[in-house]
Design a protein around this nucleic acid. Structure first.
Length: 543
RNA sequence: GGGCCGUUAACUCAGUUGGUAGAGUAUAUCACUUUUAAUGAUAGAGUCGAUGGUUCGAGUCCAUCACGGCCCA
């Protein structure tokens, strides 16, 4: 309920304008949340004044003929005389992000996409009346300007306005121009504001699109076919993770949001597509951290008549070429380290070698169950009863090796125990022809020669089902149809998954996954934490 | 789930041993025809995240909760 002060304020701002009633719902909603302050009140007053002067607040009639970026690209190098010879009139539009007024003359900055330029607005150019209207515009408004180019005294390329019109009225003030928006919570919750005022943010997301486009172009050029497979699956497979559950009403069936597309993509290998890939969202019902978001984007691709070593070569080539395209170099800075992605400089090391050479554990120790378990416990990790040696070694690896893999490392020949979909090594059945790619101490990709022996695959699923029954809710489900597909015969193949969010983090020097996801998952805003979003009640039954 | 830190004006932040709150930006009014965080003057603007408690008195101390950040699981 609005208090008296707010009621008075609303009444005051409504006074005097025939258009005041138009803003009553806005004023009331703001007042109800105790947000109705003098800044917002002034915006409403000004909006009323504009309507009183027959100015539309949200016209869709202005058409720009040039983007600011185009002007900067074409004319940044021209001097004053050359600009005068251009003599061309441009129509630009953008958000006013700053304003410096000198009375009869005003400098503003207009932001259009990611580019910004100065506009010079003078009373003598616009005329007395138009200039008075212009002075009602606020920082944050979207304006259209018609004008020609010149250089100011200080040499800045500037558009001299002949006409200025309001394109979109902004009813809320933007954050302060110098410090910008620092509050992480607001940056994530109101990403639209973050994108306006934090140039780095919009740059990250432009780069993200370049990276994804680069991956597509690369794979397309190698003859891979992009496909789409189910995101809602009756059996969630292809990864070791907890799925989100949902329900299909009409079919009255349980469905899971996918944790990986793998088993569907490999069905396509059976079907005869020899090179396929998919870039899309996976969902995992697990914790949130600087490296984990419940929904994240994954590239998975499968390549028939190739093995895991072919994938290492391809991965080096693909990721380094994308780094070159997006960052202009194959040595990229990340949180104080220079990461060398130049092809040929990627280390290849077997899983066991890495535990010995990087983790500093003797083979006699990590190959002995009890000794290995003891080291795991000593490192502060739990050992679960019945856990297999391969899993213990993986824990050892996670603690002792992974954080040290700063430069790109392919770690290959993972234990079969923890690789239920990978092909066994021909010489040693306890290890698989699988690798993971690590950069800056985190897993960036997971790849292997695919297991295409249906009998072996069935046995591995059965082992997983036993682990699930024993309480491991991340263990894989049995997928009879997938085994059936293998029984028809899947060509030998290799496949890989690459976490796109982590790749974008690497190439944009972002410390948190939330910096590279436009709308990361957050708990809902509530009145108690200062929020203004009403959370939807669970849907009631049909009326 | 655990530990540490944070939440004060629209934004960025101060706030002393507990004595009813400050700055800069933004906003408003005035001055100003070349600024670059323009300048000068004046003014308004706060449920100090929420709820309890201790106290004569709480932004400050205590407890619980909410949201966020970082680290760990």
């Amino acid at each position: 309920m609005a208090d008296n002060a707010n009621d008075n304020g609303a009444a005051k701002s409504r006074a005097g304008s025939p258009h005041a009633g138009r803003f009553k719902p806005l004023a009331d909603a703001l007042a109800a949340r105790d947000e109705y302050n003098d800044v917002l009140r002034t915006r409403i007053d000004k909006a009323c004044a504009l309507l009183d002067a027959d100015q539309q607040l949200y016209p869709n009639t202005f058409r720009k003929d040039t983007h600011i970026g185009e002007i900067l690209a074409a004319y940044s190098d021209l001097d004053e005389t050359a600009l005068a010879e251009v003599g061309k009139v441009f129509l630009i539009a953008g958000r006013m992000t700053s304003l410096r007024s000198f009375g009869k003359v005003t400098f503003i900055k207009l932001l259009d996409g990611s580019e910004s330029m100065q506009v010079f607005v003078a009373r003598d150019d616009l005329g007395q009346d138009a200039y008075q209207v212009f002075k009602k515009y606020d920082i944050g408004d979207i304006l259209g300007v018609e004008g020609d180019l010149f250089r100011t005294k200080t040499g800045e390329l500037t558009l001299r306005a002949k006409q200025v019109s309001l394109v979109t009225k902004s009813m809320r003030p933007l954050p302060e121009k110098y410090h910008g928006l620092k509050d992480m919570e607001t940056r994530y919750r109101q990403r639209y504001v973050d994108l306006i005022v934090t140039p780095k943010t919009s740059e990250i997301f432009r780069k993200r699109t370049m990276i994804v486009r680069g991956l597509r172009n690369y794979l397309d050029s190698k003859g891979f076919l992009e496909v789409e497979t189910p995101m809602m699956q009756p059996i969630p497979g292809g990864a070791t993770a907890k799925p989100f559950e949902t329900h299909h009403n009409a079919l009255d069936m349980k469905l899971y949001m996918r944790i990986a597309p793998e088993l569907y993509l490999k069905r396509l290998l059976v079907g005869g597509f020899e090179k396929v890939y998919e870039i899309n969202r996976n969902f995992r019902n697990e914790g949130i951290s600087t490296r984990h978001n419940p929904e994240f984007t994954m590239l998975e691709f499968y390549w028939a008549y190739a093995d895991f070593r072919d994938l290492m070569d391809l991965t080096e080539d693909m990721l380094s070429s994308i780094a070159r395209d997006v960052c202009g170099t194959t040595v990229v800075p990340y949180q104080g380290n220079d990461i060398d992605l130049t092809p040929g400089n990627w280390t290849r090391l077997s899983f066991h070698e890495s535990i010995e050479k990087i983790g500093g554990v003797d083979p006699a120790d990590y190959n002995d169950y009890d000794r290995c378990a003891a080291i795991v416990r000593k490192s502060g990790e739990k050992v679960i009863k019945g856990e297999k040696l391969g899993k213990l070694q993986a824990k050892l690896f996670d603690i002792l090796v992974e954080p040290k893999l700063i430069q790109p490392h392919f770690i290959y020949h993972y234990p079969t125990d923890i690789s239920p979909l990978s092909r066994r090594n021909d010489q040693n059945p306890d290890i698989t022809d699988r690798f993971e790619l690590f950069v800056v101490g985190r897993e960036l990709g997971n790849a292997f020669s695919e297991l295409n022996d249906p009998v072996d695959q069935r046995g591995r699923f059965e082992d997983q089902v036993k682990e699930k029954a024993a309480g491991d809710d991340e263990a894989h489900f049995m997928d009879e149809d997938y085994v059936r597909a293998l029984e028809y015969g899947m060509p030998p193949a290799a496949g890989q998954g690459i976490g796109i969010d982590r790749l974008v983090m690497l190439l944009t020097d972002s410390a948190s996954i939330r910096e590279v996801i436009l709308f990361p998952l957050l708990r809902p805003e509530t009145p108690q934490n200062g929020g203004n979003t009403s959370v939807a009640e669970p849907a009631a039954g049909p009326a």
